[in-house]
């Protein structure tokens, strides 16, 4: 008892440093917030539903990247391989066999997960630049296969003629894109819930351990590579669903869906929003694509430059991404709210 008391007083001194805020986790509250923000956008911007739908599906893709990078530390520039595979799988299934939108998402998720499992098992023994190269190579291979298999994929013309059945047999995909957006938003919200569940699971904990120190994980008896491969596959499912969601809501799949630029853009959006926080993926995607949309129409020549400046600003002043700003703000506010407490000691 006295021992415990002594330790507590010692840590009291250590606690004079600001307590590390619960950084990773803005809490469950973020999920209803995303839903509410999405619905607000639905009412306020009825003419931009196509863009909003693309944002929702892209946010799901960036979320998959956050799972591998933010929670597993896997540096990748080939996440679009899984996205493209999911998009083509769903597209081909829609053109030939299935029309139920949920079944199409399942097909996309399965395809994305499988390709991630197989390629992950092959490449994840590598680290750093080698791994980066290998992920790029996988993306190029998937894109090349899609290009060559013209009969199935439409090659460089893209795959069109995807005509999904009404959602739940009730809601048709209308011309205005209302159903498409609400469908995409619902899928994104559910995916966020699932992702949050996974990162807070024993598996998520182990993956964070691998991200920080794989050798320490093996000293606890774990096999770092099997965690990484499993995480890569799980994220592949998310990316595949995102691809399928784009195919279902837009009706077309193009070669660029598996391309290197799309992988790189996802990384930019994730870093912008903040890695390892889940919501950072949504915020980064919405901000990036929103700015892109506004600037590209008002100033088609210089918008890339503005995006670049914006990115530099974020990286310099908010190194944890936009989502970290919320955490810092709340830490600042709570520090201001009780100036006397730690001040006496300082």
């Amino acid at each position: 008892m006295t021992m415990a008391g002594r330790t507590a007083s010692r840590t009291g001194v250590a606690g004079a440093h600001p307590p590390p805020a619960a950084r990773r986790d803005l809490g469950w509250i973020g999920i209803p917030l995303v839903a509410v923000a999405g619905l607000a956008a639905f009412w306020l911007l009825p003419d931009d539903l196509a863009l909003l739908t693309r944002i929702a599906a892209s946010a799901l893709f960036v979320l998959s990247l956050d799972l591998v990078l933010g929670y597993g530390g896997i540096a990748t520039l080939g996440q679009a391989a899984m996205y493209g595979t999911g998009a083509y799988a769903a597209g081909i299934a829609a053109v030939n066999w299935i029309s139920d939108p949920f079944a199409l998402l399942a097909v996309g998720g399965l395809a994305g997960g499988l390709i991630a499992l197989v390629t992950g098992a092959l490449i994840l023994h590598a680290h750093g630049l080698t791994l980066l190269m290998l992920t790029i190579a996988v993306g190029q291979i998937v894109q090349e296969i899609a290009n060559k298999a013209r009969d199935w994929t439409g090659g460089s013309d893209g795959l069109s003629g995807i005509d999904p059945a009404p959602v739940l047999g009730l809601f048709r995909f209308d011309l205005y894109g209302r159903t498409a957006f609400l469908f995409a938003l619902a899928v994104l919200v559910v995916a966020l819930m699932v992702a949050r569940r996974i990162v807070r699971s024993p598996f998520g904990l182990a993956c964070r351990g691998v991200k920080e120190d794989p050798l320490r994980v093996s000293a606890l008896g774990g096999s770092p590579k099997s965690y990484l491969v499993a995480l890569y596959a799980v994220a592949g499912v998310f990316a595949g669903v995102a691809g399928a969601l784009t195919a279902v809501t837009s009706g077309i799949v193009g070669l660029d869906s598996a391309g290197f630029p799309w992988s790189a853009e996802a990384l930019v959006m994730l870093v912008l929003g903040g890695t390892g926080r889940l919501y950072g993926a949504v915020i980064g995607t919405a901000v990036f694509m929103g700015i892109h949309h506004i600037l590209a129409s008002s100033d088609p020549f210089h918008w890339m430059g503005f995006i670049g400046l914006f990115l530099i600003g974020i990286v310099l002043f908010l190194p944890g991404g936009i989502a970290s700003g919320a955490g810092r703000l709340s830490a600042l506010l709570s520090a201001l709210a009780r100036p006397g407490r730690d001040g006496g000691r300082a």
């Binding site: 699932v194 569940r197 996974i198 807070r200 699971s201 024993p202 598996f203 998520g204 904990l205 182990a206 774990g222 965690y227 499993a230 799980v234």
Partner: peptide, 9 residues
Amino acid sequence: RTFRLFASV
């Protein structure tokens, strides 16, 4: 028990 993906720690 680390391969439980959907359990809460």
